[in-house]
Design a protein around this nucleic acid. Structure first.
Length: 634
RNA sequence: GCCCGUGUAGCUCAGAUGGUAGAGCAUUUCCAUGGUAAGGAAAAGGUCAUCGGUUCAAGUCCGAUCGCGGGCUCCA
């Protein structure tokens, strides 16, 4: 008899019984819900037959881990279907990913998006037949002979450390796979193939381009529907769509990757910057501005010429080479170096709203998220080593405060440590990594460590914010830099009257202003809070008869400094309201007979609250409260 | 950069199998003076991304270029 310990419950089963058999014996209901089992950290198929006593933990379909298994199994079924439809196909890898799965394969046929329904149909046919996932463990040599005509699998087998590898067979489809898989295809409640794309084998540009099909699977149709509707909502809030609809910004063939901001988009930029300057002034920052074109000599000094050349644009002036700045730090350093500094001045905080240009490959451009020129809300802080902790803590607090105003209450940080290619002594790295980690802990930030992902000159903390659709975006970063001060020979005079080297901090809060506006647009779905809204209120006279009174109201709003519009077109009220709604104007001010008689206003807010016959002073107070306090709702 | 898709009026999109372009919205003008998401009518608006090729004939077929979209190490 074999003893199986299922989460503390001991069970004895006949030798040769599978985990599923054991579970059935213990609790048939549980057995039905269980997808895989975990034993000693190892994920096992339910069909697994324990050779000796074992302790297991069943994983049911409610578990997120079970969803990965389902997705992975569905990837196999897709590959199976593709093999049937395109027999010459050689399969590469097909993992489960965060929100689904994909499979990469090499085929002579050209498969397009239009072919996906056909593949789905074939998959359904396979699922209906419900072949079992049969696992076999074979030696590497055997595996190689099984996949002898598939260079991708051969390469994968080569890379596997263990002596024996897993082979899964479903019907007439055989795949190299460590598993585990769902016990029956009936578990696939619903799936959908989502998109098709090219993907380099192992993600490397020098490798062959394979065909990748993305899909997603769920245990229930409801879950799939919820997922699809979330995708649709994301599509609705796409900043490229909203940007066009709200007349915020545009892109033109004449300048690929270089965004154009329209008057309404500029309102966003300017309001964000006003707020940004206010916060930075409080923190003792003194703004600077450096030129966009600087001599190549400078970029050679900074190391950018050597490390960043491919991403830079160059111009020739009077037979000399100049570069368009991809970063702001060298310019800032020149200002620092323009005179001597005393230790009494430190820390010096130089923020710069700097427009940088970086060459990005044409294929990676993406709305405001990936552009070729953007405005960094940069700052360079020159301080002593002893001041680092306080400075970094202050930046973290500043970031938290500013994110809160935009409604990003959820974020985590990532600490990136020393990369393989780096400068500076190990002692300095030890010290600075430990310092950053200590500060992160002291500030109780949710964090994870990215080993080896730091800049060559120092470790960094990156901030990832979560938007209302649960997507995360890296915005703020704080980078420690011991190297640049050296390269630029930056110095300050210490108490001892000797020259010392300052330490430098590079940091951004919003990151790229352009990108941040893209993120905000999607986060708010275009419904900007009143303090940011390009148009804060629109005055809507019901007919021309009330135009004069309405115009007075409108002028009053203008005088009070609000961004108001006056819709005195000869159109029906319904139409004016509709357009104001589509333009996502926070306050609609309706003026008709009643309002004129009582010298009041009727307000329809974007948030759905209506206010009847309010006096103008009261409404102005209300609107002022919402804007000055940067309230999220009206 | 690479793979697949795509590019028609300011916007959103129709235009099998090739026979010199259509709708809705927006715009302009006129009528209706209107009470909370489109009142009615008319007009104007396009070298069908660009260049080249096939053809008697190209928005449509072929090629190139440019732009845009989905992707391009979440590893059996």
């Amino acid at each position: 008899m074999v003893k199986i310990n299922i989460e503390g419950k001991l069970l004895e089963v006949e030798p040769g019984s599978s985990i599923k058999d054991a579970l059935r014996k213990l609790d048939p209901k549980l057995a039905k819900k269980t997808v895989i089992a975990i034993s000693d950290g190892k994920k096992l198929d339910l069909g697994h037959v324990p050779g000796e006593d074992i302790g297991i933990k069943p994983v049911t379909s409610d578990d997120s881990l079970a969803l990965d298994v389902l997705n992975h199994s569905t990837a196999h079924i897709m590959a199976h279907a593709i093999q049937r439809l395109y027999p010459d196909t050689k399969f590469a890898i097909g993992p489960a990913i965060e929100e689904g799965f994909y499979y990469d394969f090499d085929t002579r046929s050209t498969i397009t998006f239009q072919d996906l329904p056909k593949i789905e149909k074939e998959m359904k046919r396979i699922i209906k037949k419900n072949p079992k996932f049969e696992k076999k463990e074979v030696s590497k040599k055997q595996a190689k002979s099984i996949f002898s005509d598939n260079p991708y699998k051969l390469e994968l087998i080569e890379g596997i450390e263990e002596d024996r590898v897993g082979i899964y067979t479903t019907g007439d489809f055989v795949d190299l796979c460590k598993g585990p898989h769902i016990p029956t295809l009936a578990k696939i409640g619903a799936f959908k193939l989502l998109s098709i794309a090219g993907a380099y084998w192992r993600g490397k540009e020098e490798n062959k381009m394979l065909t990748r099909i993305y899909g997603t699977a769920f245990y229930s149709k409801e879950d799939l529907d919820a997922y699809i509707s979330r995708l649709e909502r994301a599509k609705e809030s796409d900043h490229r769509k909203i940007g066009k609809e709200l007349d915020l910004f545009s892109f033109h063939d004449e300048a690929p990757g270089f965004p154009f901001f329209h008057p309404k988009g500029m309102v966003l930029i300017n309001n964000i910057l006003d707020y940004w300057r206010e916060e930075h002034k409080k923190e003792g920052y003194e703004e600077i501005k450096t030129p966009m074109i600087l001599s190549n000599e400078l970029w050679k000094t900074s190391g950018h010429w050597e490390n960043y050349k491919d991403n830079m644009y160059f111009v020739e002036i009077d037979q000399a080479e100049y570069a368009i700045k991809p970063m702001n730090c060298p310019g800032s350093n020149l200002i620092y170096r323009s005179r001597q500094h005393s230790y009494r001045e430190l820390p010096i905080r130089y923020p710069e709203i700097g427009l940088v240009h970086r060459h990005e490959k044409s294929g990676v451009l993406h709305g405001l998220f990936r552009v070729r020129n953007f405005t960094q809300d940069d700052a360079h802080i020159y301080c002593t080593e002893a001041q680092l902790e306080e400075e970094i803590t202050r930046i973290i607090k500043l970031i938290a405060r500013m994110y809160d105003v935009f409604g990003f209450n959820e974020y985590h940080v990532e600490l990136s440590t020393r990369p393989p290619k780096r400068i500076g002594s190990e002692a300095i790295w030890d010290k600075s990594e430990a310092l950053l980690e200590k500060i992160i802990k002291e500030n109780k930030l949710d964090y994870k460590v990215n080993e080896g992902d730091g800049a060559f000159y120092g470790p960094k903390i990156d901030f990832h914010i979560k938007d209302c659709l649960d997507r995360t975006w890296q915005c703020a970063t704080i980078q420690l830099d011991f190297s640049t001060p050296e390269k630029f020979d930056l110095a300050y005079v210490g108490k001892d009257n000797a020259k010392h080297r300052p330490v430098m901090l590079h940091r951004v809060v919003l990151g790229s202003l352009e990108r941040f506006i893209g993120i905000l647009t999607e986060h708010y779905g275009g419904n900007f809070p009143a303090w940011l809204a390009p148009v804060q209120m629109v005055v809507l006279p019901i007919s021309e008869k009330f135009e004069q009174y309405a115009r007075n109201i409108y002028s009053r709003f203008e005088d009070e400094g609000f961004r108001a519009e006056f819709d005195n077109r000869v159109e029906s009220l319904g139409k004016k309201i509709r357009e104001a709604e589509l333009n996502k104007v926070p306050y609609m001010v309706v003026i008709g007979k009643n309002e004129q008689q009582t010298q009041t206003l009727t307000i329809r807010t974007k948030s759905g609250r209506d206010i009847k016959e309010i006096r103008i002073d009261r409404f102005i107070g209300m609107a002022r409260e919402a804007t000055s306090k940067k309230k999220m709702d009206l």
